[in-house]
Amino acid sequence: MTLELSPDHAEVVSLLHPLDAGLEPAIASLHARLARDAQLTHTLDIAYRVVDSPVGKLLLAATDRGIVRVAFELEDHDSVLQLLANAVSPRILQAPARLDDAARELDEYFEGTRTEFDLTLDFRLCRGFRLNVLRHLPRIPYGSTASYAQVAQAAGSPNAVRAVGTACATNPLPLIVPCHRVVKSDGSFGGYLGGSEAKRALLRLEAAA
């Protein structure tokens, strides 16, 4: 679209500059009000917030059914939000309140005082065998590990070792669904969504607690 703007456009815009007084703080409080209103009117399909953690900034996103996504910085939070917009709904706002419990439980986990999560999860991003694998992962106790082969066996498909790897690599709820406890049969770490350094740190944290 070509904008047919008046020749005096820039000058008039600067004339109107007083309208910008206190604009940024106003927008910040209006954004918070929008998040609250949207929540109250059930117009918010996905609420998210970003929290700090020892393994970098974490994106936490929730639908009205539960936590739907946890994402590492490495995954690029903007891309993750775009994927959520495509897969679930573009009605997404930064709205911290819905993620209060998740943020608190993750804090406790990183402090070493929480060994399992008590959160409602929304598994709508996974299907079939992958979902089956993810549902099994919380049974690997805190502080221990299982091999991809063991998980495949436990999930009822002993030959699906590679598919277990894929399920872990595409886990939409890392940390909460502990795919970091799945390691290679030779004892090496294997890959991780948040990077192998993060996986090492998590296993060290759990071993120390």
Binding site: L19, A21, L23, H31, Q82, N86, P90
Partner: peptide, 26 residues
């Protein structure tokens, strides 16, 4: 693909507030 609404608020929030201020007063 439609962008997350959050991006729309961040990008257009200021313009819409300026417009509302001009039409209605601050």
């Amino acid at each position: 693909n439609k962008r997350p609404f959050e991006a729309v608020v961040r990008e257009e929030g200021a313009t819409v507030l300026r417009v509302c201020r001009a039409v209605l007063g601050v």
